Amino acid sequence: MPSETPQAEVGPTGCPHRSGPHSAKGSLEKGSPEDKEAKEPLWIRPDAPSRCTWQLGRPASESPHHHTAPAKSPKILPDILKKIGDTPMVRINKIGKKFGLKCELLAKCEFFNAGGSVKDRISLRMIEDAERDGTLKPGDTIIEPTSGNTGIGLALAAAVRGYRCIIVMPEKMSSEKVDVLRALGAEIVRTPTNARFDSPESHVGVAWRLKNEIPNSHILDQYRNASNPLAHYDTTADEILQQCDGKLDMLVASVGTGGTITGIARKLKEKCPGCRIIGVDPEGSILAEPEELNQTEQTTYEVEGIGYDFIPTVLDRTVVDKWFKSNDEEAFTFARMLIAQEGLLCGGSAGSTVAVAVKAAQELQEGQRCVVILPDSVRNYMTKFLSDRWMLQKGFLKEEDLTEKKPWWWHLRVQELGLSAPLTVLPTITCGHTIEILREKGFDQAPVVDEAGVILGMVTLGNMLSSLLAGKVQPSDQVGKVIYKQFKQIRLTDTLGRLSHILEMDHFALVV
């Protein structure tokens, strides 16, 4: 994948999101292997301009796509893939009243899908469409860049269908997702969380590099694949309309690839034109409109599966009536509230959605109805927002919020430890010299600072030695090549209790 991002070429006709291997024109390309080798690009942008032909009021008969309808489940399912879809609609009884809503608040519980998330729908649909058009064949390999849930859905379907599955996901995604993927037989590649989507090191860039190296491999490409919004247009939206008897006044959905909100909203605009569509985008993402909503100094966020630093091709923002931004604290607070007060075992993005819903639905009156999409299960986040310690460490809970008995030293300040200034190293000294210094002084790690004293990161003896043994660096290389740029900081005025929580999850903390 090139470091400079080429513009994806656009073909003359058809839909841009065809499933299957992508040609340089962004659509299915038939021909000899030699032709494909000559024409197939190194990668295709996940934010390529959409060429979708959908228009409100256009006859369904003019759609270029294969459409399906929700099917009634048999008493005995032939395999677990038949437990994807037909998820329950559940009334939220307490939270709406707590925040003064007059309307009825309903939750579409997508964590009841077989793999635990709304992404099971698009995973199965992308595979079925690729099999139907002859792209996927027995023994082929599926590769997908994902925040985890699409990966789980694909790995689940691949396990049943017999495909090899490789999932490329950023490091910030939970260990629970990784464990589930491994249990399903998927191979996992992790990428830096802070890598831009168009960087060769991003999950998108690495996935395309693997595709170019592995024979008979395919990126189904949830960011561009029409099967993504079509899955929701054909099934999720129809289920909502049936469950609500066609009567709903507002739908609120958090947005990642945009397939969920695009597919549902398009069908609702056709069948229930008075329904307002509300999009939820986390602070630090750029999906919301108008652009002024996205202006923030924050560039990272903890909530998973929603928000991006690019506009995915499948996201149709014209069908969203209003956007709201959400933050991590309210997302996790509301997710825990949904679990504790409503018994809905949902993930953090569901918290984002409901946090926005109780604001947006203030305009609705008694007798009206708001539906929220709860995308995934708490299963993926047992060591994250479900953990009091994690919430404390991230600053989303305060010590006084917890009532468990603490040891005698818990409320003492870090400054009472009488710490001395640490050994520091410059980023320009060599790895070999740094190892000598650390061994001589008896230290395992040291902060790396520039000549102005600005902290650049941390270097550890173990990481340097393993990097040297693996051949990633040489003793003569500058130590700046092996620094940890993500590390926890703590102030002298913070409590030892807070430091204790940090050290339970990290090997060190830097006192500043």
Rank of each mutant, 00 (worst) to 15 (best):
G26C: 09
E270P: 04
S61T: 14
L248K: 06
R132Q: 11
I127N: 06
G20C: 04
I84K: 09
C52S: 01
N93S: 15
A38N: 10
D198K: 07
M169N: 00
P229R: 01
C103S: 03
I127Y: 08
N212V: 10
G151I: 00
A71E: 12
G20N: 10
E176A: 03
G162E: 00
P70Q: 11
G205L: 06
R224K: 09
H218Y: 10
E131Y: 09
I167D: 08
R266V: 06
I188G: 00
A253F: 05
E171N: 09
A207L: 00
A253M: 07
F111V: 01
P64E: 09
L268S: 03
H232V: 00
G151M: 00
T150G: 04
N194D: 13
S227C: 09
W54G: 06
R276Q: 07
L210G: 06
T87K: 00
F112D: 02
A107F: 05
G57T: 11
P215M: 08
F197P: 07
T5I: 12
E128R: 03
G148D: 03
V160Q: 14
P215R: 06
D86S: 10
T13K: 09
P88S: 11
L42F: 11
G57R: 09
P12V: 07
M169S: 01
P273C: 15
V90K: 01
G263H: 00
S202N: 07
P6W: 03
D198L: 08
H232R: 03
G100I: 03
I214A: 02
A195S: 05
K119T: 00
A71R: 12
C15T: 09
P16Y: 12
K247H: 12
S50K: 07
L241Q: 03
K177M: 01
N212G: 14
V10M: 15
G116E: 13
G96F: 04
A158F: 00
R51D: 07
P74K: 12
R125N: 09
D140N: 03
E171W: 01
D129V: 09
E176N: 02
K39W: 13
H66G: 10
K211T: 10
G20A: 15
P229Y: 01
E171Y: 06
R182M: 04
E62S: 14
P6A: 08
G256D: 00
G11D: 10
P229E: 04
S3G: 11
L42E: 10
A71H: 11
V90C: 02
G116Y: 13
A265W: 02
I219L: 09
D120C: 07
G256A: 04
A155W: 02
Q55N: 15
V189T: 07
P70W: 11
P59H: 10
F112S: 02
L106M: 14
A69T: 12
G274C: 03
D129C: 06
G185I: 00
M126I: 08
L268V: 08
Q7C: 12
P88D: 04
L154N: 00
G258D: 01
W54S: 06
L248F: 14
G85Q: 01
R196V: 03
P215H: 12
R266A: 07
S61Q: 15
P46W: 01
A158D: 01
A158E: 02
S63Y: 03
K211S: 05
K119Y: 01
E104N: 09
I188H: 00
S175H: 10
E62W: 04
I166N: 07
H203I: 03
C109T: 06
K269V: 01
R121C: 00
C52I: 00
K102I: 09
T236H: 04
N93Y: 05
K267D: 08
I76G: 08
K98A: 11
F99E: 10
L56R: 15
G259V: 01
L42A: 10
T150K: 02
S174R: 01
L77P: 03
L136N: 00
E201P: 09
G134Q: 08
S199D: 13
P215D: 09
F111R: 01
G115I: 07
G151P: 00
R121V: 00
V10I: 15
W43H: 10
A226N: 10
A38F: 10
D79K: 05
A60N: 11
I167S: 08
F111W: 05
I127E: 06
T68R: 12
H218W: 11
T235N: 12
H67T: 08
S3M: 12
Q242V: 11
E62T: 05
G26D: 06
D120Q: 07
I76S: 08
E34G: 13
E40K: 11
I167P: 08
E144S: 03
E213C: 08
D198I: 06
S32A: 12
R91M: 05
G20T: 10
Y163Q: 01
K94I: 05
A155C: 10
P21G: 05
V206S: 07
R224S: 03
V255Y: 03
T146E: 04
H67S: 14
H22N: 13
T257P: 05
G20L: 14
E37Y: 15
V255P: 04
G274R: 12
E4T: 05
I122K: 01
K98Y: 07
D133P: 10
C165H: 01
K30T: 10
L184I: 10
K267I: 11
E144G: 01
Q222L: 03
T260S: 09
K75Y: 07
Q222D: 02
K82T: 05
A195F: 04
R58H: 15
N216M: 02
N216V: 03
R45Q: 11
T262H: 05
C52G: 00
L106Q: 10
E213Y: 03
P70K: 11
V206Q: 06
M126H: 06
E187K: 12
R58Q: 15
R51M: 06
P215I: 06
T5G: 09
A231V: 09
V90H: 00
R18M: 05
P21T: 15
K82C: 09
F99S: 12
D198W: 07
F99I: 15
K137A: 09
A114Q: 11
A158T: 05
H22T: 09
I92G: 04
P229T: 05
D120V: 03
R132L: 07
G14F: 10
R132N: 13
T68P: 12
T68N: 14
T68K: 11
T235F: 15
R161Q: 08
G11F: 05
D221N: 13
S23Y: 15
G134R: 14
D133E: 14
S202E: 06
A71K: 11
L156A: 02
T262L: 02
G134P: 08
T146V: 05
I219E: 03
P46K: 01
P74H: 07
S23M: 10
N149I: 01
A114R: 07
W54R: 06
A48D: 11
L241D: 02
P170L: 03
K30G: 11
I214K: 02
G263T: 06
V90R: 01
V180Q: 05
S123P: 08
T135F: 11
P200M: 12
D234F: 07
E213W: 04
V10E: 11
E62L: 12
L124Q: 12
L154Y: 02
T262R: 01
K211R: 12
R276T: 10
L136R: 00
R161I: 07
E239G: 00
G185M: 00
V160M: 08
G96S: 11
S123R: 06
V204E: 09
T53Y: 08
V10F: 15
P70V: 04
I240D: 01
K39S: 05
D245Y: 08
I92A: 03
V180R: 02
T53D: 09
A8R: 12
C272M: 12
S63D: 15
E34W: 07
T235I: 12
L106W: 12
E34D: 12
D179F: 01
R266I: 10
D179I: 02
K102Q: 15
D47N: 09
A60F: 06
R18P: 05
I167K: 08
D133S: 04
P229I: 04
K39D: 12
R209W: 08
E201C: 09
D120K: 07
L56F: 14
G11H: 09
R161P: 07
S23W: 14
P170V: 04
R190A: 01
K25L: 12
V252A: 14
E213D: 13
K269H: 06
T5F: 10
N228H: 02
T68C: 12
S202D: 06
A265V: 06
K39N: 14
V90M: 04
Y223Q: 02
N216Q: 08
N149W: 01
H66W: 09
L230A: 04
Q243R: 11
E131N: 11
T13P: 10
S27P: 08
L241K: 06
G148F: 07
T236P: 04
M126C: 06
A237K: 02
N225I: 00
P16F: 04
P49R: 09
L241V: 14
K108S: 04
K82N: 15
S227W: 05
Q7M: 03
G258Y: 01
S227P: 09
E37D: 12
V252F: 11
R45I: 09
E104Y: 08
E213R: 11
P229A: 05
P2M: 11
A186K: 00
G259R: 00
T13R: 03
L56I: 11
P6K: 08
